[in-house]
Design a protein around this nucleic acid. Structure first.
Lengths: 154, 154
DNA sequence: TGTGAAATGAGGCTCAC
DNA sequence: GTGAGCCTCATTTCACA
């Protein structure tokens, strides 16, 4: 499946506003609604567009603290890793879990209410996971940029 | 502005599917459409719901490599920091920029096509930013969890 | 003030060309 | 790829508790 310039333009418009109408897109791209409609359906069917979501302001729902957590593990066998991963991703506070190369084995992006909740999360949840040798935390003090938009050049 | 249980349920449904119809929500919550409609408008007006977006699969648009980049800086005056931040967040590859406490000064979440592009990004863009003393990279090999959903308990 | 029912109009979606 | 038309659903209005 190859995407052309119009596909990328559609994707970018929908990244910006997931509820933009087909008519508006058609007008901007100087096409009629049908080809836009068909392209969107194809992008959805091909999994390029995964889903449509509402972006919520974390502070407004009392989630004020992002943390990046580095985990190092003792045992690197597939079985051991799978068990750790299954436990870690089951925690709702963990929004992202990346298996990484570099200074650690995993990077977690965690969202909690505040420092107390973060401490609680680490001591009551992360510490219960076996085979973790090291936990380093980077706590977000402010967020100069927080985008969900995938950078596209076309 | 206080949110009650119904508000949280609406938020969660819209985090899951940003295009869920008011009728469906009304049915699930056993209410009529009007109160749901009014609540959503209020959540939007209050900034709880920031926007609606399409979630794009990065691999399908040829963006296969996430990286977490740690920056340490030499000069911590507000002016120096502001200049660095302005440059860093201007790079489209930088999806997130957090000012953090812990093992570094900034954490960046970067998305590029592949290793070559990442090297290019670091050498041609990050290295040109003045006052950076150290750059550490954690490259994402796989992503066991990648959610945009804010964890809500209610 | 918050809820339910009914009317209106915009926009997703289909079809013929 | 275009344009017309159906039909669902968002949106508004109104009566009610």
């Amino acid at each position: 499946m190859k995407l052309d310039k119009i596909d990328y333009q559609i994707i970018d418009m929908l990244q910006q506003d997931g509820r933009m109408t087909i008519r508006d897109m058609a007008q901007q791209l100087k096409l009629s609604t049908t080809p836009i409609f068909n392209r969107i359906k194809k992008l959805e069917a091909d999994g390029v567009i995964e889903k449509y979501i509402a972006k919520i302001n974390p502070k407004k729902v009392d989630k004020g603290l992002f943390a990046f957590v580095h985990l190092s593990i003792k045992e690197h066998s597939k079985e051991a890793v799978d068990i750790i991963v299954a436990q870690v991703i089951s925690f709702p506070e963990v929004m992202e879990c990346h298996y990484v190369t570099g200074g650690a084995d995993f990077v977690l992006k965690v969202l909690v209410k505040n420092m107390e909740e973060y401490n609680q999360f680490v001591t009551e949840k992360l510490f219960t996971v076996k085979n973790i040798s090291k936990i380093d935390s980077l706590l977000s003090l402010s967020i100069p940029k927080h985008s969900n938009k995938i950078p596209l050049e076309y």
